[in-house]
Nucleic acid binder design. Structure first.
Length: 652
RNA sequence: GCCGACAUAGCUCAGCGGUAGAGCAACUGAUUCGUAAUCAGUAGGUCCCCAGUUCAAUCCUGGGUGUCGGCACCA
């Protein structure tokens, strides 16, 4: 006699087990029509699932948040049926709902092509129109295996065999077609609707393992209705407009070419942006009591053998030799990391415990031979510069240094326009250096440090560095994408391998602990993120060109030059546009170039010695005497770390 | 690295088995103009590279390189 509690608190009793379909019908025809699935005691299940005991029940309609996942999952099933109807012999594997859509992986000798989409989508619409009910059936393991084996679905057989012994095996059919699936599903294929679109094909390894067969994956997007689909497609277009590669080209920041794959040619404007960021970081590090160093690019393999890189990461390292008989036995490697070199500086001379914690920073230029398929604009390159530092400290200092670092990192992110970040804790990976005891110690130490620093994290098992556990700091950008930037890694291994030591208070020799840490990660990657975050319209203090002075007539040029000089002397990055073009033309040109401030000078301004300031792409403008304009812009362009506090503490 | 697509002027793109075209940009000239693209003219190409097929290849075939979308990788 189940008593069913509805979201409004009302209770309905039934004589025996009832399905959601029955309950919905009992409540009203409108609901019966709208209910796609239901949440029983919070768990989403098919509407046709019998409810046998007292429960709370909530119906899921198209407007509920859960509907999207159901729609997408069902669309994946419809896709799979369509594909098997059109391309006999294709095997199905898995097809989950994902953010914004779904995919389905198929095993087929010939991969699908985008040209196939039109036919597949047409068939999908046909299947949706059939509105075959999704019917769930629980079968025995043997029955399921035999069924899929008979259909020649080797991957499904493998999936079934991999399921835990106690797991129920369910099949979902839609008309004549059927799939191994956990569910839940909506009532029938008609509930999918028509707001879906196949978006791309891609290869994907079976079970995500590169040693396995390559499957053919079809991606799609699916929404409640056409309006949502259109909105999504528009949003994708907008995201493309922020692509750092596109903006980099449009603003003339950098370029890439095949003679230096994975390395960036920074153009003057791009390099200005880079150095502005670097100058800022340098000030922050100095204020946080780091000492900056610079270490070699080319280092003998001996050091990499000692550090352990030669063993574990040789295939990612660029090697260099000299074509000279006397050098024939020397093999150099471009550094992929800075840490071994920093230990060399630490080791140069006897260190005292009094020097710890010793924070050694370097804007370290590194080279790594990344797989060709991983390269992506300036975000994933083979030559990059880390805002790297290593903190040599005692075990007791790890917690305080972690807290200190997290404070610095949070403040830097805030200054750069990112208000929140997530922290992931990555523990020991399969391939690693160091003893189990040292890993136990390092992991426990870092967790304790997080606790003391008040850092909340999510666990990221098996993703630590080969020498130690790490914290990863993940930023979310303006359009909701996540970027892993900062990192903090605890390392007991490298000091040992490279024999770092200091003289302790009791005059014994002790090993320091090393904390590897970065805030931006790499300048290249971070600048890519920053470009996309701001869509190229940087805050004034970061903009490569802060002000353009645009003239209206030639008579205004001498004063415009004078004004440019005044701004330049005041530290403003200014350019003069004295082209023989109308102001009507200059305005859109500089909007496209994402110049933050346009200063217009016509005959009138030249005569009275003023500037008309206009914040692009806005339309408002104000006229100021030159000196006032300079003062105003200087104040506004001040980097956040140099700004005078809003409410300065008065001197005692 | 793997699967697929793509590579034509600085940029965006069109084109065709008979050695290429537009718009914008560039350059020259005219215009001196008041806030979202002034007018006219000129110049600009190894059609990614290397082979092959063909009387003839930018186009067809094969190989390579790079880029793009995924997958895998990311110390």
């Amino acid at each position: 006699m189940p008593a069913i509690t509805l979201p409004d608190g009302s209770v309905r009793a039934f004589d025996g087990p009832v399905t959601g379909t029955t309950v919905a019908a009992a409540i009203g025809p409108g609901l019966a029509k709208a209910a796609l699935a239901m949440a029983v005691d919070g768990k989403v299940v098919d509407l046709a699932t019998p409810i046998e005991q007292d429960a709370t029940l909530r119906f899921i309609t198209r407007r509920d948040p859960e509907a999207l996942e159901l729609i997408r999952h069902d669309t994946a099933h419809v896709l799979a049926e369509a594909v098997q109807e059109l391309f006999p012999g294709t095997q199905v594997t898995i097809g989950p709902a994902i953010e914004n859509g779904f995919y389905y992986d198929f095993a087929r000798n010939e991969p699908f092509k985008p040209e196939d989409f039109a036919a597949i989508e047409a068939k999908m619409r046909e299947i949706v129109a059939r509105n075959a009910p999704f019917e769930r059936r629980v079968v025995s393991r043997e029955e399921a295996t035999a069924l899929f084996r008979a259909k020649g679905e080797a991957y499904k057989v493998e999936l079934i065999e991999g399921l835990p012994a106690d797991q129920e095996i369910s099949l979902y059919s839609q008309g004549d077609w059927l799939d191994l699936c956990r569910g839940p599903h909506m009532r029938g294929t008609g509930d999918v609707g028509t707001a879906f679109k196949l978006t791309k094909v891609a290869g994907a390894y079976w079970r995500g393992d590169h040693r396995n067969a390559m499957l053919s994956r079809i991606y799609g997007t699916a929404w409640r209705d056409q309006k949502e689909l259109d909105a999504y497609l528009t949003q994708v277009e907008e995201a493309e407009k922020r692509d750092h590669r596109r903006i980099g080209r449009e603003m003339g920041l950098f370029h890439l070419q095949e003679e230096a794959v994975g390395s960036i040619f920074w153009h003057p404007k791009g390099w200005r942006l880079y150095t502005v960021l670097q100058d800022y970081m340098r000030r922050r590090l100095e204020a946080a009591e780091y000492q900056e160093v610079r270490t070699p690019q080319l280092v003998d393999r001996k050091l990499w053998e000692a550090s352990g890189h030669w063993d574990k990461y040789r295939e990612h390292m660029f090697l260099a030799t000299v074509d000279d008989e006397s050098e024939k036995d020397r093999l150099l490697a471009l550094k992929p990391m800075n840490c071994p070199c920093h230990v060399q500086i630490f080791n140069h001379g006897l260190r005292s415990y009094r020097e710890l914690p010793l924070r050694m920073a370097e804007f370290g230029a590194c080279h790594r031979y990344e797989p060709s398929g991983a390269l992506h604009g300036i975000m994933r390159v083979r030559a990059f510069t880390q805002d790297d530092a290593h903190i040599f400290c005692t075990e007791d200092q790890v917690a305080a240094e972690t807290a200190r670092f997290v404070d610095l990192l949070a403040s830097v992110y805030r200054d750069l326009g990112f208000d929140s970040f997530r922290v992931k804790f990555s523990d020991r990976p399969a391939q690693r250096a160091g003893s189990e005891e040292s890993w136990d110690k390092a992991e426990a130490g870092l967790k304790e440090a997080c606790r003391l620093a008040g850092v909340e994290y999510e666990l990221n098992p098996g993703e630590g560095a080969f020498y130690g556990p790490k914290l990863e700091f993940v930023l979310r950008d303006a359009i909701g994408r996540d970027w892993q930037c900062g990192t903090l890694q605890v390392d007991y291994v490298l000091p040992d391998r490279l024999d770092a030591e200091y003289v302790a208070e009791d005059s014994s020799r002790k090993r320091p602990v090393m904390l590897h840490r970065a805030i931006l990660g790499s300048f290249e990657r971070f600048l890519g993120i920053l470009i996309e975050q701001h869509a190229g319209r940087f805050p004034l203090w970061l903009a490569p060109v802060q002000v353009v002075i645009a003239t209206i007539v030639d008579d205004a040029v001498p004063f415009a030059e004078q004004a440019a000089e005044a701004l330049r002397k005041a530290g403003i990055r200014v350019a003069l546009d004295a082209r023989n073009e109308k102001i009507n033309r200059k305005v859109p040109d500089h909007i496209e170039q994402r110049v933050p401030v346009l200063a217009v000078v016509g005959r009138r301004e030249a005569e009275e010695g003023s500037l008309v300031l206009r914040r692009l792409p806005g339309r408002e403008q104000e006229t100021l005497p030159l000196a006032d304009a300079v003062a105003r812009l200087v104040a506004e362009a001040m980097p956040p770390d140099l700004r005078v506090a809003e409410n300065p503490v008065s001197a005692a």
